[in-house]
Amino acid sequence: MRPLLRTLLLWPVLWLALSQTAAWQWLLAPLAAPGQTVLFDRTSLAALALAHVEIVGLALGAVLLVALPLGIWATRAAGQPFLGAVRSLGTLSQTIPPVAVLFLALPIFGFGRQAVMLALFVYGLMPSMQGVLTGLSTVSPAVREAARGMGLEGFDLFRQVEWPLALPALLAGVRTSAVLLTATATLAPMVGVESLGTPILAGLAVDNTAQVAEGTVAVALLAMLTSATLRSLEHILTPWSRQTA
């Protein structure tokens, strides 16, 4: 529990850090050209971060909603024939650049959240999908045989043996998805949705390095904290994967 508590406590700390406008102003001032506003001033950095987290959270939720049932089904006897297809689907989805998805989605959804969600969902699917498939399909045959020999079948076998043993790979995949989505959500302002990408794109448009740095540093901090949080979650959910001879 301890490591998870520690990383969870860092979230309010991050929130506070993002709210220290004066400190950011002071830090980034040297990067701004004379006459430029140092910080993006239409929305506060903390509010942008909140919007960013919300987009990433929703997209990650959508990824899990698809990856988990699909991955579980593809590794059951009934779905086994489609395992290859599901695997390729995950890989294929990541080869499509999110920028392309954004613009392809424009005629359908127009500007706004839906286009962002679609792009993030498509781009973030693979690592989670791969994690679920790897986790569930690499459970040792000896362990499965022993479990069946002790009278575990069907849902019992899944819940008590296969699922817990799949968790390390599964959670690692989810963590990769989350970090990837945190970085990619900076594209949201291209279709009119605010995120930590807003100061970056605004800064790029007027050649304002300070604003680009403002968004970039904030996204990097957010990605690192997301990764650390999920890592500590893995830590407490799979205590057995650490202890060795």
Binding site: S140, A142, R144, A146, G149, M150, V161, T238, W240
Partner: peptide, 11 residues
């Protein structure tokens, strides 16, 4: 039931 390589549950 006891098998080669034990098949103990690692978790």
């Amino acid at each position: 039931y006891v098998i080669q390589g034990t098949g103990l549950f690692p978790h």
